[in-house]
Structure formats: structure tokens, C-alpha cells
Amino acid sequence: MSEKETKQKEAAAGPTAESSKTAESSKTAEASKVVHVKDESTPSTHDAHSEPGHAAEHGHAAKHGHAAEHGHHAPNRKEYWQVFAVLLVLTILEVGVAYLQSYVGKTALVTCLVGMALGKAAIVAYFFMHLKHETKEMRWTVVIPMMFPAIYAFLLIAEGTYRALWGT
């Protein structure tokens, strides 16, 4: 490809091409560091960026650390076990509540069961699916669409309740 053609392509592609150009220009200096990428015993991308020089070039590591640079926050095993304990307790409570149907009103029972189930689902999404570490926008991207089926369910239940109570 001629130099002219290359420049035209870069201009058309905008910032992405600009980034590639920067990467290309620095490839000679980086070559020795980047070789580590091919080390198969450990995760490739992590190795490359654990180099202080490389991280500084990208300007991230100093601020966010190695794991954060790749969207991987330092794992908190204690928290995972705590979440497991909460899920376990809620499951036992759910089963216990389900056996109380002879003693508790159906509305209270269903509200309690659905509340616990939604709570458990939210805990799994927030901690295990790492929504906790995502940006606010990413969280809303997931939550807002899933609210529509819930709203529809709520409307159907409200309509059913209205008909049952007032018989229209």
C-alpha cells in the first residue's frame, strides 16, 4: 500500500486509525516487551501489560492498577463466600416460607417469596456477574430493558387483582 493510500485510510478511519499509527510507531521500542505476550503459561494480555513501561505508555496502570486496566478488579474471595452464605440462607428461608401456606395469607406468602427471589437474582447479578464493577451506564443498559417484562407483569397482576376485587 502506498503512503498516500495509507494516509487516506487513516483520515477516513479517524481516531482508531490514529491509535494504530501510534502503536505502529512505538512498536520497535516495545518489541522486546511484547514478546512476553506469547508466554503460554499465563494469560497473554495480562503479561504484556504488567510491564511498567508498557502500562505507562497507555497511561492507565498508575491510576487503576493491573487488574482494573483489563476490567478485572482484584478478586474478593471473602465477599464471594459471604454472598454464597446470603444466597444459602435466603434459599432455606424461601423453602421454609413455602411450607407456611396453611398459616400465612396467600398474598403475603407470594409477596415474600417473589421478594426473596428477586433479591437473590439481584445479588447474583451484582456480585457474581460483576455489575458491581461496571459503569453506571452499563448497569442501566442491563437493568432498564429487563424492567419492561416486570412492568408488564405488574400491570397484569394489578388488572387481575382489580377484577377479582371489584368483579368488572
Binding site: 505502529e24 512498536k27 516495545e30 504484556a48 501489560h49 452499563m138
Partner: peptide
């Protein structure tokens, strides 16, 4: 070397979705 470098590219620090 260039191929290796591309393999190791950091995901862009997108302003809204960060490094997802």
C-alpha cells in the same frame, strides 16, 4: 512484533462503558 502488539492491545477506555 506488530502482530504481537495487536494481540496485546488494551481495550479502549470507552467513556461510557469503560474497558468492557
Amino acid at each position: 512484533a506488530a502482530t504481537d502488539h495487536e494481540h496485546a492491545l488494551v481495550y479502549p477506555d470507552e467513556p461510557i462503558y469503560s474497558r468492557i
